[in-house]
Design a protein around this nucleic acid. Sequence first.
DNA 1: ACATTTGTCGCTTGACATTTT
DNA 2: CAAAATGTCAAGCGACAAATG
Lengths: 467, 467
Amino acid sequence: MPINSFTDYPMSWKPDRDVLKRPFYLSLASLLEHDIINGYLAPGTKLPPQRELADFLDVNFTTITRAYKLCELKGLIYAITGSGTFVSPNAARSITISKDRISKECIDLGFAESFEQTNSIVAEAAKKVMEKSYLEQLFNYNEPTGIVHQKAAALNWMRAFGIHANTEHVAIVSGALNALTIALLALFEPGNRIAVDKYTYANFIEISKSLRVKLVPIPGDEHGMLPHELEQQCLQWGVHGVFLMPSCGNPTTVMIPDYRKKELAAVIRKHHLILIEDDVHAFLSAGITDDYGQPMYQLLPDQTVYICSTSKSICSGLRVAYMVFGDAFQEKIMRAIFNINVKTSSLDAEIITELILSGKANEIVAKKKQLAQSANLLYTELFPQPLHTGHPLSFYRWLPLPDKVNGSQLESYLLDKGIRVFHSDRFLSGAGTPDNYLRVALSSTNSLEELKRGLEILKENLRLYCG
Amino acid sequence: MPINSFTDYPMSWKPDRDVLKRPFYLSLASLLEHDIINGYLAPGTKLPPQRELADFLDVNFTTITRAYKLCELKGLIYAITGSGTFVSPNAARSITISKDRISKECIDLGFAESFEQTNSIVAEAAKKVMEKSYLEQLFNYNEPTGIVHQKAAALNWMRAFGIHANTEHVAIVSGALNALTIALLALFEPGNRIAVDKYTYANFIEISKSLRVKLVPIPGDEHGMLPHELEQQCLQWGVHGVFLMPSCGNPTTVMIPDYRKKELAAVIRKHHLILIEDDVHAFLSAGITDDYGQPMYQLLPDQTVYICSTSKSICSGLRVAYMVFGDAFQEKIMRAIFNINVKTSSLDAEIITELILSGKANEIVAKKKQLAQSANLLYTELFPQPLHTGHPLSFYRWLPLPDKVNGSQLESYLLDKGIRVFHSDRFLSGAGTPDNYLRVALSSTNSLEELKRGLEILKENLRLYCG
DNA sequence: ACATTTGTCGCTTGACATTTT
DNA sequence: CAAAATGTCAAGCGACAAATG
């Protein structure tokens, strides 16, 4: 029996010790999960310290450790040595971001599409592919990682971004997320840690969670992740990898300048980290900004998986992404591709190839950049921001909120007013001071007029909501 | 210090205690992994019992438990309470089966393709799709799980196999393997157990391994998995799911008759298992064999994920598979799809849709069945087998070997003679008496003549090899 | 600067289940 | 059938590391 009675001790969570069945830790964990999912424990709540709860329940404190650990693995809570254990901000709901159907009336500034007005050019290319003499061969099992001429076109495409490799080190997969899943499965194990920006790609957070890969948020500034902070976390935790989007961070629109890339590369090299470089926005940065330099793959070819999706730059509906990697990763990545894809549609890859080789892809990019410029101009007029805040051509913007607001409440409030946007909480990679931003997609409306209307409604309602 | 000296005790593995660093269990596990990967410990070797090795190394026996456990999770070893711990049959090499390039001279009876002679029909359908008024809309982000009319066509297609559902419970994904990955990620957790046939789909074994889902092999007879054996394993271990290919098991060609489906369904219902039903071969069985009945999904709609790929039946290069599921799984599966695919190529799905709606898909199926019949006839002439051995139209056959042979040796011997086939070891889902079979694909050669030549070479060389 | 709070981790203990003999 | 061999698992112990005040 415990020595003291805790009945009126201020503990945030007092599980009923009578309902606990053996094994205690499992029973306790599912009790905790239940209470979080059902909202009895609000996000951010500090749970009782392990020793205290252990005393209360009259078990050893490491039994509590185990129960907490289970819930932490599921992403329900997080623990900070020295300060305590807390309910996760996104514990109760999924942060998965997708293009699911929302009401017709609603203007979608949430899910970031890619100015789909250019798809007529894609349709033309598709028709051209139908005339190829080798059309039939696109429908069989051959060449699971892409046909050689498709890989050559891929390299041709990526050369503009500064990628130099040979076809042996390229694979064609079914989109960026597919590439990320492959990279995580091939190169990491459950329990491994990957350093990420504090705010990062929401679907990457979700995949990591489901593959039990832990994310370690690293502070950054306006030029991206801070090298010394990364270094410190490497020393502190055993960090195995880093995930970066150097050309234009999602959702923060941060572009990492060349000097910072080099500093980060030095840390990554020193600590033998695996870099996952998601360069979907390379086409927005290479050759435009002065200090672009080159992808980090070129600085660390043996430690990097470079991922370049064509969803944003060329066409979103054709699921094509290129993976570039060094010798050390080749076998593992190839095996993962066979295991989870068998192959990627050669037809999709061929249409992208046709677009690249015919020069139409560049035409599309030029158009999209132009649309992005207009959209950003519109945005800046309504939401003035300091010069050089983030990427100038980003397909979405990162809007600081004037006040401390509740993320999901604000989202529903705005949805009710006919606007879908995403609050920063959805992009939170781990514990941390919950700042307040909105990610506002500029690339998902059918026209600039619709975008303008959407932004105006957003502005007006933010004024009303935040006062 | 240990009391006894074990220096000349017959232990199969004597790690050097001096190279062990703390933490012991990690150090020991990587030592063991190294010795297995490098072949110092052959597959099947019995490792020292935990207590014995613990004594030898002067640590507690549960420290050995943990080290062994780690290696077991990686699939390197397996343990049987009461008998001991053993090196896995497939520890050192991957059993991933893919269409990687093999020499031109070689006749491929290994990787099972699907009579690719029908792809000209697919090419025609693709051209038809180019004329659709809504072509451009196939290239955007909309409808991540498939456009409604595509889902309707999917249901139309599967109705012939006995599937009845509505479009809300269907999703279009990128091939069967993609569907399996989604199902495993959505519905299972690391450490969960899934019951499978002793010999099962090799890539499923590999995905399970990488997602840390354990497979429990269940004995079967000529009509498939034995219900009472499944029941017994459910009681013994905590089994969470079952994986079945009822229409034509890969690699065994076993077709589960209706009475057996019902018996199995009863066990699955009783133990609340999740059934993953891979019905890629439905088109070969529905309406052909008398005792087909219906898919198990119809018997257990709330506990089943039904997967129907069009790779074998219609076209392998267009990566399309249909998933059908009940309400209980819908949300989890949808979320997993958004997380790992974002979406599947609408273009690929549309071409398949066109093939189905125009009736060309049935034409393709008829042709493939005809080719399969001829191929099976050829096979039976050269390798006589008892009547009613497995599925009569299977795209591959399961050839019992006359003698106890080494699997990978035989594979290389035959490869050397210009024939690629896969030995049964590649399909082994867990520990078990290693029988000897070859899976001989009948559907991967460019012509029946090539197949005949291949089978003749195979027969002749098996005679020479097995004596 | 230092003690306190708090979480982490590896190892040990002992009860237990299964298989073999 | 009982005893021995063997692997499994939950819980406890204690050293340690990080954050707080």
